[in-house]
Every structure is written in C-alpha cells, then in structure tokens.
Design a protein around this nucleic acid. Structure first.
Lengths: 342, 342
DNA sequence: TTGAAAGCGCTAACAC
DNA sequence: GTGTTAGCGCTTTCAA
C-alpha cells in the first residue's frame, strides 16, 4: 500500500540530470551551478522530497539514532529521564528509539538486540530488576557499541554511568527519621541483586550505625511495589506495632504502605513516620505529603545523553569511562515528624 | 568507531559461497543442501550474525516499524496507551518509534516528518493541544500513510480513530455531581479547539440541561493543568464561594483544584465536590480519593494498534475508516458526596 | 559543472 | 543446489 515516495532518482529522471547532481544540489555542493541547483531545489520542494533516512543510514553507516531501554514508561522517574534524554538528543541531531523491558529480562534482551539490528549509534540503558545475566550487554560492549547506563547500572562492564548517590540518599533520609524520633525503622527494599537496592540498604544500615542503633534483619522486607505491599500486608501489619518508622525504596511503595497503615488506624506521622525515595509528583499530592529524597530524573537524562554524545564524537576513543553521581536532596514533608533531637 | 558488524557478505567470503546462498540458507530456503545450510548457520551463530534491519527495510520497502506521537509520556494515560500499543505491536512483529510533541505544534510536525523519513509503515497519533494546522497530517494522509488517531483526533481527515466517549463521560459525571446535591458546578476545561475539550464541555452542559440547570458561562474556566490552577487561583477562589462542585477536564487539574480549596479551608466534598476525568492512579491516592471517570488507556492503545495492523495488511485497501469509541466508567470516590436525590 | 560507477546489506528473478 | 545480477535510495570517488 505504501506508495513510492519520491526519491532522488525520480527527481533526476524528471529533470534530466543525474542522481548525483541532484544529491549535490540538494546539499548546496559548490560545484553545482546556481541554475541547476535552483531548478532541482524548486522541484524537490514542489514534490515534497524527503531523504530516506534508512538509505542514508545504510550508506553512511551512522543512523543518528540512539536506543533507550527503560523498565517502564509509566513511572515518572523514567519518563522524565526520557524527556531529559530527548531534549539533548534533539539538540544534537539525534533521534531516539524507546523500548520498555517491563522489568522482564527476556524483553530487555530482545529490545537491545532489536535496537542493535536497527544499527542505533549508541545505547542508553536502565536495567530491568530481573536481569542477572549480562551477556546481551557484554556482547554489545564487545562490539564497541557506545553505551551509557543510568540509575540501574550493569557493574559487569566498564561503561559510562549516571547514577544517584543511593547510599547517601538512604543514609540521609534514615538519619532524618532517627533524628525526628524514630527508633525502630522498617525498610521496604528492592531486589538485592540490584545495585540501587544494595546501596539504599547500606545507607539505611549506615544511618542506624551512625546513631548507635542495632540493625535488625527482621526489619528489612523485600517489597518494592504497591502490589508487593498488598501481598505482604499481613507481614507488614504484624510488625507494625513494634516500629515507629518506615523507609521504602521508592515513593509508590511508601505511599502504599502509608495507606495500609492509615486504613488500619495508625496516625501518620505521629505513630509511624513514612519516607520514600525519588520524589515522584504524587509524593506531594498524598495526605500527609510524603517525605522523600529528590532524584533529578530530567537532569540525569540530560547527563546520560550528553555523555553518550561525547563518546559518539570521540572518534579516537580516548575518553575513559566516566561515572556521574547525582546527589539526592531531602524533601521534608508531613509523613514524618518535624525535626527535633531525641 | 562503530566496528563493522558481520554482514552476509562477510559470511559468504569466509565460507566461499555466494551471498545469496547465505541469505537463502539463513532463512531455510528448501533449495539449499543441508550440508551448506548447516555450515552457514553454524558459522553465522558463531560470529553472532544479525541481519541489518535498515538494509532489510530498504530492500523490502517495509520497515515493520510504526511511529507513535503522543503529547507527553509523563502522563499515565499516554504511557499506558503506549504499553497497549507495544504489546500488540510486538505480538504482530512490529517495532515502535515513540515521539513526544510536548504539546508543541512544531515539535509534532518535526516528529511526524522524522518518522516518515524513517519510513515507518504507519502512524499512531494523539494530537498536541496547540495544533491548529493539520497540513503535516494531511500530507501524510495524501501519501497514503496508514494512520490511526487516538484520544485527540484530527477531524480534518478521514482516518481510523480510537476515542473515549467524552461527551457521555462528562455528562455522566456532571449528572452524578448534580444528583448528589451540586447546584452550581465550575468546569475547568481545556482548549476549545480540541475535540475532547468541546465534547466534555458539551457533556457538562447537557447534564445541566438534563437537570434543568441554567448554563452559566462564567462557570467555565479554561484551565487544564495544575500549573493552570496555580495561575488562575485568584479567579478560582473568587468564585469558590458561589459553587458547590467542580468538574475538571482531567484528574491532575481536579487534584490541584482540590488542594487549592483544601488549603483555603474548604471541606471536600461537603462544601464543594470535586470530580476529574481519566482515572489516573493518583486519583486513588489523594485524600479524599477523587471521583472520576475511567478511561481505558491500555485497551485504547491495543485497539489503535490493532486497527493499524489490520489496515497494514489490507493490501486491497478495502477497509473503510473506522471509529472505535470507548465508554468511560464512573468511579465514585470520596471527593464527591454519597449518592442521593436532591 | 556534471555524470558514471561502485557500494552500504540484503533479496529475488533468472541463469546454469 | 548455487551463483550472477540488479536494485532498494543515497553518497562519493573518479572521469570527463
């Protein structure tokens, strides 16, 4: 059904010149006489000629397209990262192909492969939660495909990375909970094989130790989605009496936990303080507003794309892998008590 | 820096056969002897051969890629539509290229053009708010590019469309407000050139008229984002004393309005009921939970992609343009009063 | 100032 | 059963 869009050859035939003349005229090659150039340009405009990006990429061996793989677009953090990426990409003349892994390892593999098949010039990746085998990344890396990981990085390969200081963010917010009176803090964490999960857990533990609180492994539950809260609600409620604070690995989980506690008659923050991670816009909309730690998604996206762009123009391959760390900022709101010492 | 990925020619040379033999062997062409086929397949696997999708598309004049243009990924409605699209697309062997217009007409034009340059097989579009000139769509339409509009459609051309019954949704929810006691309902609406804006306004007016309430144009404000609420807060507050209900064109605006009123001491829903449109997940997280109307984004995405797919396989071009209408479902929550008559 | 030819990676009609 | 050739749309030497 696709009608034949007009090509350089069509123009050449119509105007009785050669395809190469048309090609040159269209890009203002100095050799072409003004007369022919104008004639060609006018005709091209008239028939609405547009170069075929596929043919161009094939010829030039450069697609000016970069591939993005994120877990899920529906999360504000990821969609704002993408906006950051896109804005830089556009300004540098790149297009993006966006894929979602849906936190599924296989879909991630397929996506990476498909992007490579489309000969993207580079890859921007945030790993899925379930990825434990890195062969698809390693193989791209070995093929020298420039890539930048963001947020959830692959430590198996030495690439550019853009991350949040998860350890510090978790330490800050846990400290804040402790300093506003919490003594027994439940941590709702994510998959331990995920760097960000480990780091946030470590930050939590560090804050406890900073304040001479003994770490209790029973106060760490692997639960990182609202659905997880629903599934583990009995467990959470069973220990709710012995805790006075919750630090969840992300905002949506924190909010789900907060709702669960509210439904069960708890006063937030007076009986139990709740804190999240990420500063999703919802954090400000729930009641009480959620104390959390701001992750600058948009800026991280910009940074990731900038790193990639630099690498793409680094023909000599002399830039060493870089890691950019974003410091999260504490957002004190009403799901935690006001600041006080002891 | 891109290293030469191994091509069919490389394999052919290495194995001392012709490129066409390799091509045929790889796709199990019956003519090829089992011996050569195995030899080729093994070698291809060994060197991790992957067909170049660009070359394939160029050759076949079919890219198996479809282009999507949405206003903004950060809105749950759009990202869930995209998930619906993707799931169907994948299952039919299509890839997607996603673009954001950021509600900007020019960016929309550029996006459509870029997708066309990449020779996508079809287009899935939700118009930007600021689009008043449809030339970019018309020109694609004239070039017979199959396309499906969803949610915010372009009435200038006769294509497949997937929409919500905005009129009915607005009428339902406004009626519900009236039936639960509201007599003076403020409507926070969107750009009047947008079909969905007009339809929701008409539905609102119809509900008033159904209940013999005189329409007051002063009770319609053009305000369709939280930012808009912030900008027009004086205006909204100035009429807040004379109203007992608000129907906003989308949930985020409704929530922003609700917060504004709460901050100013209003009791929601007893003094003022608030209702939105769309059933964004936040609607359930705010306090009080927002009464709204459910728009089935995921299903709409699935439907849009299905329509497009049918059209793409309709070589004879015999399918007439179709319009699929999704009926929104009222979600009664606590930002409005309980049902009662008068 | 312009054209011819080769080639990017792949496929398919047509030899043999 | 396999090779040759041409061509998808474009660019770029090399010739003229």
């Amino acid at each position: 059904m696709k009608p034949h869009l007009t090509s350089i050859n069509d123009i050449a035939k119509a105007l009785n010149v050669s395809a190469s003349t048309v090609s040159r005229a269209l890009k203002d090659h100095p050799d072409i006489s003004e007369a022919t150039r104008n004639k060609i340009k006018e005709f091209a405009a008239k028939v609405n000629y547009r170069p075929n990006a596929l043919a161009l990429s094939l010829k030039k061996q450069v697609s000016n397209t970069i591939g993005i793989v994120v877990p899920e677009l529906v999360h504000h953090f990821f969609s704002s990262i993408i906006s950051g990426i896109e804005d830089i990409a556009y300004s540098k003349g790149y297009r993006v192909m966006i894929c979602q892994s849906n936190e599924d390892f296989q879909r991630e593999e397929i996506n990476v492969q498909a992007l490579l098949d489309h000969r993207v010039d580079g890859l921007l990746i945030c790993m899925s939660k379930t990825t434990e085998n890195f062969q698809h990344f390693i193989s791209a890396y070995n093929n020298q495909v420039p890539m930048v990981f963001f947020d959830r990085v692959c430590k198996a390969i030495d690439t550019d990375k853009v991350i949040t200081d998860d350890f510090n963010g978790a330490r800050q917010i846990t400290s804040f909970l402790i300093e506003t009176g919490c003594k027994s803090i439940l941590h709702l964490g994510t998959h331990p094989q995920l760097d960000i999960g480990q780091e946030r857990l470590k930050g939590y533990m560090q804050a406890l130790s900073d304040h001479h609180i003994v770490f209790d492994p029973d106060l760490v539950i692997n639960c990182d989605t609202p659905k997880g809260v629903e599934e583990k609600k009995d467990h959470i409620l069973s220990i709710s009496r012995q805790i006075d604070g919750i630090f969840a690995v992300n905002d949506s989980t924190a909010i789900a936990a907060m709702h669960l506690l509210k439904e069960n008659g708890y006063d937030i923050p007076n009986q139990i303080s709740v804190a999240g991670f990420g500063d999703d816009p919802v954090a400000n909309l729930v009641d009480p507003a959620l104390t959390t730690v701001e992750q600058q998604g948009y800026q991280m996206g910009q940074e990731a794309m900038s790193l990639l762009q630099e690498r793409l123009s680094d023909k000599e391959n002399e830039i060493p892998p870089r890691t950019k760390i974003f410091q999260p900022a504490l957002k004190k709101r009403n799901s935690t008590r006001l600041q006080f010492k002891n």
